[in-house]
Write a protein that binds this DNA or RNA. Sequence first.
DNA 1: TTCTTCTCTTGACAAATATCAAGAATTTAC
DNA 2: GTAAATTCTTGATATTTGTCAAGAGAAGAA
Lengths: 190, 190
Amino acid sequence: MTELEQYIHSYFGVSKEEVSRISDCFHLETLEKGDYFLRTEKICNKLSFHKSGLIRVYALEDGKEITQWISSKGYFLTDLSGLIFNKPTRYNIQALSDCEIYTITKQDYQNIANVIPRWHELEKLFIARCFIFLEERIFALLSMTAEERYQLLFNQQPELFNQVPLQYLASMLGITPETLSRIRKKIGKT
Amino acid sequence: MTELEQYIHSYFGVSKEEVSRISDCFHLETLEKGDYFLRTEKICNKLSFHKSGLIRVYALEDGKEITQWISSKGYFLTDLSGLIFNKPTRYNIQALSDCEIYTITKQDYQNIANVIPRWHELEKLFIARCFIFLEERIFALLSMTAEERYQLLFNQQPELFNQVPLQYLASMLGITPETLSRIRKKIGKT
DNA sequence: TTCTTCTCTTGACAAATATCAAGAATTTAC
DNA sequence: GTAAATTCTTGATATTTGTCAAGAGAAGAA
């Protein structure tokens, strides 16, 4: 089984036969460092499973880049407002390093439900989990200091800190690079 | 049509016959001011459509109440982690005023898909919209000052400001009541 | 390598926001 | 209607975080 199949199997609890029917709809793509998966104002027309490398989701606001998320191996990648509602995105999604992703086109994506009757239900469960994840992120932003949010991110995704420019992680935490640098100095970086 | 039926009809684009089959699963409930819709550590076992009144979603963290959201007429109310994944919630959900809500039990909720074949798909669309909404909230928390977030909330839900204690709105914006008071003084409250 | 570019750190200072305390205003309870 | 409780505002001050600028360090290109 590919990583994609393993993921679908273990996360969705789908039978092996269904798994392979789903994964057949995906094809392996590569992104080179700097390539864009999606650019702002475009309508996202694909969904990908992140196999390797790092990808940054960011938006430009008042001349500043706001990093919303850094995707790494094991995440799904898309812009839901485009994929589901045909709306242009505010985000740029760009490879921070060479990447491999398994991609399904919007057409194939919309067709999966015909192949896998439970697809909408699985999707619902998946998006619900994403919703809860964002809810927790909001809670952290409302209730924690910059330092606490740093510790949380560091515990959850330590691998990011030696691969992603710290300025992007700072932005994702809602602070400036200088503040992140001082927090790390104070704490001792590990 | 009740408000619930109108909402389902206009939002989901479901036929009138399906609408009434869905809405039949809901029953009208009342909450008195101070009543809890859900308490922390419980597993949420219902989904409600908010018909009237105001309801606050908050969590206790380090002795402080963090208001995650204020629900008003037209929103759906539940804790997804309980309803879908049977996990206990971190939140308290409490009526700020006397409320009317249309409620469906978890059992009936889980049964809807048998009655309405498209239910999982509709749910997926609904939760996806909620996801995008949270994504925007995170973006606001990452990129805007307290004053800008206040203006945004004020534009989006002005009705909250003469009905909800400002301390709760402050918490929802990620600031203290004192800071909110000063922002309002500076701006001129309208 | 060597040069260039990008990234990170540090310091000095400014701005935003929090904290604490007190009193005013409003709402609730009887 | 009055008293009690809650909520809101304000001032003084502390803390956190941001801004700007400069230099150190690291990564990439030729």
